[in-house]
Structure formats: structure tokens, C-alpha cells
Nucleic acid binder design. Sequence first.
DNA 1: GTCTATAAGTCGATAGAC
DNA 2: GTCTATCGACTTATAGAC
Lengths: 201, 201
Amino acid sequence: MQKNKSRRVEILEKSAILFHKKGYSATSMRDIAKAMNMESASLYNHIKSKQEILQAILLPLAHRYTKGIEEIVNSPLTSIQQLERIIADQVRITIENTDSVSLIPNEWVHLKNKSEKDKSEKDALKEFLQLRNFYEKEFKTVFKKCIKDGYLRKVNVDIAIFSILSTLRWLYSWYSKNRNINSLVLETELINNLIGGLKKT
Amino acid sequence: MQKNKSRRVEILEKSAILFHKKGYSATSMRDIAKAMNMESASLYNHIKSKQEILQAILLPLAHRYTKGIEEIVNSPLTSIQQLERIIADQVRITIENTDSVSLIPNEWVHLKNKSEKDKSEKDALKEFLQLRNFYEKEFKTVFKKCIKDGYLRKVNVDIAIFSILSTLRWLYSWYSKNRNINSLVLETELINNLIGGLKKT
DNA sequence: GTCTATAAGTCGATAGAC
DNA sequence: GTCTATCGACTTATAGAC
């Protein structure tokens, strides 16, 4: 049971790397098996399907983002402190799960909804999109509050948020080529870059 | 000949949309044929292979980026004006080729190098990466000159450039959901957001 | 220039021996 | 829990009729 579980986690980790490198569709079960030094048939002793691998990577991660922003929003911090903590949390998630995070921008499109044949499948695509919408809504609320509270200038909210989230979405790519950077330096530098220019002076 | 050419362009346009929506690997020739209202075999009267479609979309676009930055860099503008023009040019390219641009961040990995069997194939992957490296090198040179000339503060150059390019890379995604925005507004707003915070006061 | 038919290969997944 | 063998569906691409 313990050994079985760790084998499964190994598969998820190798799969995340391969999905990142070639994309979900271009990665075959044979590719994953090769990375695990086993035959593709053996994979099915640990996972149910290729689709289940993708879900097992993306859904817990999406929940991690949501949990993070929820805790920050419900804290007694000021709006601008919350915004900074949200950015810092994204940096931390990226550093701790770089390969999985790399699948967030694009590979989620291959998540499938519950199929007709197998009712035990989860409505993974729906769940993922709900979590993402919730996150973006919370982010926007905090950002608007920062303007209302007088911490930030009255910029075009949609463009500014898009710009911040774009950088954070591509952080995994930059970080995988610069893994030796100190994570606290990265956090503070990014917070300065992303909202420093928006602050009232 | 004229008709043949426009048919080919139609295929490239439909393919770009499909590659964007599902990815290159998950898009089949049957999918493209369906979007063209023809059988998949008929596609081969206009294009040589699926790989050639990808190359015909990505390579001219990569050359367009390079041509743009080269012209700006060789102009008599000041360094900060050049930086602003480079950002504006990326906005313009994205607005004019939204579907093709959407393939730049990820789908280029499916470009293939010259194969052993068909020596007439181009070394597409190599060419694409050379153009990208050239672009990023030129961008960095201009950015550093802006600091040296006293227009921008002495920030961490790599992190700042990564942040700017991330936003521009994801612009296609934002723009495809907000196509009614005035392009000049978008240009000026983005220039302000991306380098406004870096300027010396 | 479009079609039908099909070649030749790869895909995800299963059956059953050990 | 891993293997070999294999199924049936799907893939890109070609041949040849019209």
C-alpha cells in the first residue's frame, strides 16, 4: 500500500515533466512507461487511465491555489498586504511544484468531463474551471479594494490584472532555467515589478 | 494558381484556430478537413504535410517579429523610445495575427528539424529558435541601454524582461476575449503598465 | 481538385501467464 | 506487480478513379 502509493506518485511526477515537454496529447503511455523503466501495461496497476493522470496532477494543484487565496482574503491584513501575499503565494507554489504548474496555462484543455460510459469519472474540466474562476474573482476583488483604499492608482483594472497574472503564469518557465535564485529575492523583486509601478506616490 | 493559393491560406488560418484550441498533436487532419468542408485526403492538394502547416504558420510570423525589432533598433530613436516602439509593435502583431500568435508560446515545440528521408524539409525548429534568440538578445540590449541612458531604474534586468515578455506573450489570450478595445488605448496602457513602474521619477 | 479506399503505423487499454 | 501479446480505434499520408 505504501509502496504502491509512492510508485503512483512517481508516475505523476514523470508524467508532469513529459506533459510539459511535449504536451498531453503528444505524450504516449509508452513514453511514460519508458521514463518509469517499465512496460506501458504495467502503468495500469497504479493508475486507471492517461486522463486520470492529468486529473491527479491538475486538480489538487488548483485546490492549492484556491486554499491559498482564501486564507489570505480571510486574514486581517490590509488590502495591499493581501495583494502582496497572494503574489508571494503564487511564487511559492511555482517553486514547490514547477513541473505541475507548467501544465496550468495550456494542458488543462485536455481535462475531460464525466463520460457516458464511466459514471465514476469526475467532472474534472468543470471542477478545474470553477476553481480558476473563483481564484480570478477573488484576485479582482482584492485588487479593486487596493484602489478603493487608496494604495494603488486608478488604472484599467482588467489590463493590470491580466498583466500581473501573465507574469505569474510564466514564472515556471523562467524559474526552471534559473533555479538557483533565492526564493525570497524572487518574491520581493516580482512584487516590486508587478505592483510597484501601480502604487500611489 | 491564385485560387490554389487562397485555398492554402484558408487551410493555414483554420489550422491556426484548431491548433490554438486543442494543440497541434490533438488536432487531426480530419479535424482540419472538417473545418474546410472537405475530406482529409483533399488537403494534400494544397499542403504537403501536417508539419508543413505548422511551419507555414510559425516561421513567417517569427520573421515578422525579427524584422520589426531590427527596424526599430536601426532607427534614430532614443533607447526608451525604441523600447516603447518594440512593445507597441508586439501589440500590433498580436492584434493582426491573433490566432497564429497564440501558437508561439507552446506549439513551436512540435516543429521538426530536417528529417533523414526528406532532405527538402527545412530545419524549421532550428530556424525558429535562432530567430527567437536574436529577438530576445536585441530586446535585452535595448533594455540595458535604457538603464545606462538614465531612463530606467537599475532593476534586475532578467526578471524585468521576463515580466514584460510574459505579458506580451499572453496578450493574444486577453485580446481574443476583448477584441472591441481600441488598439491605441491598449498600446499606451500596456506601455505604461510594463515600463511605467520602472522609470526614474 | 475532390473523392473513395486503404496502407502502414501508433494510440490507449485489456487479458492472462507468471 | 510486471510481463507478453493483442485488440480495435485512430493517425498521417498515398494511390488512383472521376
